[in-house]
Design a protein around this nucleic acid. Sequence first.
RNA 1: GGGCAAGUGGUGGAAUGGCAUACACGCAGGACUUAAAAUCCUGUGACCGCAAGGUCGUGUGGGUUCGACUCCCACCUUGCCCACCA
Length: 843
Amino acid sequence: MARLKEIPSFLLGEVKLMNPYNTKEIERIEKKWQKAWEQKQVFKTGEEKDRPKFYCLEMFPYPSGKIHMGHVRNYTIADVIARFKLMQGYNVLHPMGYDAFGQPAENAAIKHKSHPAEWTYRCIDQMRTNLKRMGFSYDWDRELATCDKEYYRWNQWIFLKMLEKGLAYKKASSVNWCPSCETTLANEEVIQGQCWRCKNNVIQKDLEQWYLKITHYSEALLEDLQKLNQWPSRVLAMQENWIGKSYGVEIYFQMVKTGERLPVFTTRPDTIFGATYVVLAPEHPLVKSLVAGTDREKDILEFVEKAGQMSKSMRMSGDLRKEGVFTGQYAVNPVNQEKIPVWVADYVLMDYGTGAIMAVPTHDQRDFLFAREHALPMRIVIQDPERPDLRVEDMTEAYEEEGVQVHSAQFDGMTNEEGKSKIAQWMEKEGMGRITVYWRLRDWLISRQRYWGTPIPVIYCPSCGIVPVPEDQLPVELPEDVQFTGEGGSPLSQSAGFVRVSCPQCGQDARRETDTMATFFDSSWYYLRYISPRDTGRVFDKEDAAYWMPVDQYIGGIEHAILHLLYSRFFTKFLKDLGWISFDEPFDRLLTQGMVLKDGEVMSKSRGNTVDPDAVIAKYGADTLRLFILFAAPPEDQLEWNDHAIDGSWKFLSRVWNIVHNKHHPVDEQYSFAALPGDAKELEQERNFSIKKISEDISQGFKFNTAISQIMILMNRMEKFSVEDQPVRQAVLNKAIETTVLMLAPLTPHICEELWQKMNGAEESVSRVPWPSYEEGSLIKDVILMVAQINGKLRAKFEVPADMPEDELKDMVLADETIQRHLAGKPVKKFIVVPEKLINIVV
RNA sequence: GGGCAAGUGGUGGAAUGGCAUACACGCAGGACUUAAAAUCCUGUGACCGCAAGGUCGUGUGGGUUCGACUCCCACCUUGCCCACCA
């Protein structure tokens, strides 16, 4: 009964029983063909390497239970592409798996006093059942789950290779810590100061942790974005911003008191003559020594402590009020030997640049606000050439536009654009600084203090230090003897059998690493494992990878635009350097599908506005659900779920069902296009045009919605067409019906298999029948519709022979009564003819 | 503050320089029916008009063009992403 309540009223009951394509029949057909596909291994990946390949990949799901509409949309889009390519004769690789490690499994284990593996594998079973019910064309023999030890051993292998190459390293630093998840987080996992998973505020904590040196590939990760011309531009923009390359100058200030050198980074060397103070981040290592023993020491240290206690989100949130204190010390500006005050303020961040800045309040809004608040001096060094009388007293905000250098010694009068490079070069030559590049991208923190992940395969030995687990001892398996209480820190550290180990090098008592890897590690290379998922001796088969990779089409949500896609690109570059692959980028073409909305809001459990795909299938079947999802919006746009509109998709499929059963009658009759009578010729023309349009719509931009509408147009015409007991007309209609079923096959495979079999008695799956082709000659029309405009306004329409010469056309149009009336005797200035489209008369 | 999308009937959407609103949903009317459901047919941007027909109309204001939903400039609104990044 509880389950009934969850099902919205529009899904109760069955579709109309009077209709032959009814709920019971649909269920029968879909079950029948799903079974047949499995038994005959219809979607087993081909071994023929001489055929052109197509690797169709969708982002694998986190197995949290039932699939939701977002999955259905993602995987339906991918399935149509995979099936379309199969019919076009490609050797298709279309795998599915589960991103199965992660916190929800561990939380479920704590709650139910069980084991994360239990919950995870139960969810996987549920998900597999759901996916199969959708009729997706996966090669199930390649299914994988990242929590299988046969998968994660290769995580460990890759990690060890990175360790060997110096790309995995351990360091102590201030890290992002989620108090609720009790674990560290990567920068990419902190969204506006909050944990990406649980949304709690993230705090900073000093810990020693494992990092991957993704910054080793900063330049390549940025540069190679140019190769990804089949990725959405917004994803490219997001990655570019995240990598964040800034050209600038590191300028060396000198502390008056200690003589120490203080490098600051700026992208605006043209404003150096306007620097009126210097600011250090509260965490800057120079702060303590600078104020030691001065009367300001107490105040400063108090401020530093206060800033340190604030979480990143608090520090960055709200009104952006800038707090700071004067250190009582001064630094020398190298370009003019000016002594300027040194401040400590929380608007300067330690983890970017050098952790110190030169402040130019006149030309930087943040510095301007801080300077106004603390009554610090200002000096204008860039003037607006339009109104060159800007004065500090009149300023209400910083002047950040382009302009001309003033008060800048020998650089006065230059445009600041010129000043930027001239000043930078001069400073470098004089030893006052160096031209350099700073990146926003940070190394990737992968240690997690959780159980349900890949154990990091290292051992700590009192004598040998950090010792990698030898390859032949992989995998380091997760221990079973662990209690999930949610207390006392990392569960692995409580398993004595796991922690205590002898050193692989010297044999003495040692300790295992108890942190596990971030789950994004697992998903950074799974597309390679699909290539040889059962290979027990290697991470993947090199030769097979050379054939299948890169992925031709990747489909998934925009939420992975930075994290997963950036990490995967990093892994690809690393594996290339290792000599395992020879390409630079893993995903050739990327499609980010839009979200599924209901009542204008994203469909989600927390909003309580979800529609269960399974309940929709129970009433309408998978084919109707697939068709609706594809028809309602272009794949990249948001999709507004409509309880009523799904009925329309079902109705259309029943029309297809009925036309095959009622109007398709085999005849032994050949026909030639040219000899066909009028409306039969038109139907044949529409059929050919439909093949052309639908093929283009699917292959150029996945416009399934317009492809479907063209099938509907063809359908409407077929239903109006009357055979009149003539075998030729029957043959034309048969051909159109068969073509319709073939073109629908990738979209609604179950019904099409059934209808194809009915029409042909064929044994072969419709998914292996070649995609229909069209005749250019059958597209040419004898009579075309021309529209006539006067001054761009539509006035009349003419049906004319396609080959009518222009001057005849002109005479005809000008002689027309309606045209004459609108011309009202005005002289014709111009007569424009757009062939096969329109005529515009300018008066 | 920066970046990227998008703005079209009652609704989802189509048209990327050439008939604005294809296709569908919804709605209205009709046929069939004792009745309903299902199915089929017709209509459906707004305004004026009995009609023929006309005027207006793709967020707003300009521009380019014989012709603009489409291209250019400015602005408004919404969504998403990033953000004291020096």
